[in-house]
Simulated assay, not measured.
Amino acid sequence: MMDKIKIHVMHTGYVCVSPDLPFGGENCSAIKASGIFGRKENRLWLPVSVYLIEHPQGKILVDCGWHRNMSPNGTLDKAAQIKSLGSLFLYLVNQGKIEKGAAIDEQLKRLGLKTSDLDYVLLTHLDCDHANGVGLVKDAKKILVALDEVECAKRHSAVRYKKKWWKDVSLTEFDWNDTEGPVRKSYDLFGDGSIELINIPGHADGLFAVKVKNVDGKFVLLFSDGGYAEKSWKQMITSGISLDRDKQKKSLQWIREQSMDANCLESLANHDPSVIPHVILL
């Protein structure tokens, strides 16, 4: 077993959203969060993060970011993005771009890895900026998504989710097998507590954080869209997109407690503009 777990924090492009989407708070309506009627000049460009975990038991990718086909030339491309997402509405809510070389398969190649080298891909939830790029890594050995999230995507397929993003991709649905987290639902990936997928519902039903822990009990928390930045848990600011406000607040409170734990080395949101790509040794 190697001495250290290595976590590569990478950005796979950017997403442009209304400021109310990430930081709208509990009284924000879904329409306001969408930004469709808001001022374009007030929009925020936020990074779209993914994480490669080099673990003694395999190589694990957390989320996939955007697909290259939605930004073929590395710039914002309205027509390409609408075609890739299959939705004009989703383009209006969140425009995206991926610089050349920043798509997940391109970044893995730069690290000397093939997508088939991935033992696991963990989809924290199925929103477009997390799952649209899954086709780029479809030959990974196993691609996991929570059963709760698959059911959530079925219920909200008319607007929020599009099955075409994972068409021809073999997804493995999992149910919770452990009891860590705000709603006592989690999945112990290796059965040793080193990689725990922890349900943090609210933003999406099957959303999970990934807690990566070493033998000394030190850990890194990758909390996806449980909050959109460090200030989310520090100031308890929920996002404007929520399926259940009470669960969202409960999840964010849990993220806050975990982030303030003395054993927490880093606590990272998926779209925090203050986070720059780096490597964590755990």
Results as ranks from 00 to 15, higher is better:
Asn263Gly: 11
Lys211Trp: 03
Gly202Met: 04
Lys6Ile: 08
Ser116Ile: 10
Asn177Glu: 09
Ala204Lys: 13
Lys185Pro: 02
Lys218Gln: 15
Leu108Gln: 07
Ser49Leu: 13
Leu122Ala: 09
Tyr91Ile: 15
Asp119Glu: 06
Gly24Val: 05
Val15Gln: 13
Ala146Tyr: 06
Leu44Ile: 02
Leu88Thr: 11
Gly38Thr: 14
Ala102Gln: 15
Ile200Phe: 12
Leu90Glu: 08
Ser29Gly: 13
Cys28His: 02
Leu113Arg: 13
Val159His: 05
Ser49Pro: 02
Ser29Phe: 11
Ile241Arg: 08
Glu54Phe: 05
Lys97Cys: 08
Ile82Glu: 06
Lys185Asn: 08
Met260Phe: 12
Ala269Ser: 15
Val134Cys: 01
Asp3Gly: 00
Lys164Ile: 15
Val121Gln: 12
Lys250Pro: 12
Asp63Trp: 05
Lys185Met: 11
Asp205Met: 14
Ile7Arg: 05
Trp254Gln: 05
Pro22Lys: 06
Val145Gly: 01
Val279Pro: 06
Val210Thr: 15
Asp192Cys: 10
Lys40Gly: 00
Leu88Ser: 04
Lys154Phe: 03
Ala204Ile: 05
Gly217Ile: 03
Ser186Thr: 07
Leu88Tyr: 09
Val48His: 00
Trp254Ile: 06
Lys114Pro: 07
Arg43Val: 02
Lys6Thr: 12
Leu126Thr: 14
Ala146Gly: 03
Lys32Ala: 11
Leu197Ala: 04
Trp45Gly: 01
Asp77Trp: 10
Ile198Pro: 05
Lys138Glu: 00
Lys185Tyr: 00
Leu92Glu: 09
Tyr228Gln: 08
Tyr187Arg: 01
Val137Ile: 12
Tyr51Gln: 04
Ala102Trp: 10
Arg160Thr: 13
Ser224Asp: 14
Ser116Met: 06
Met260Leu: 15
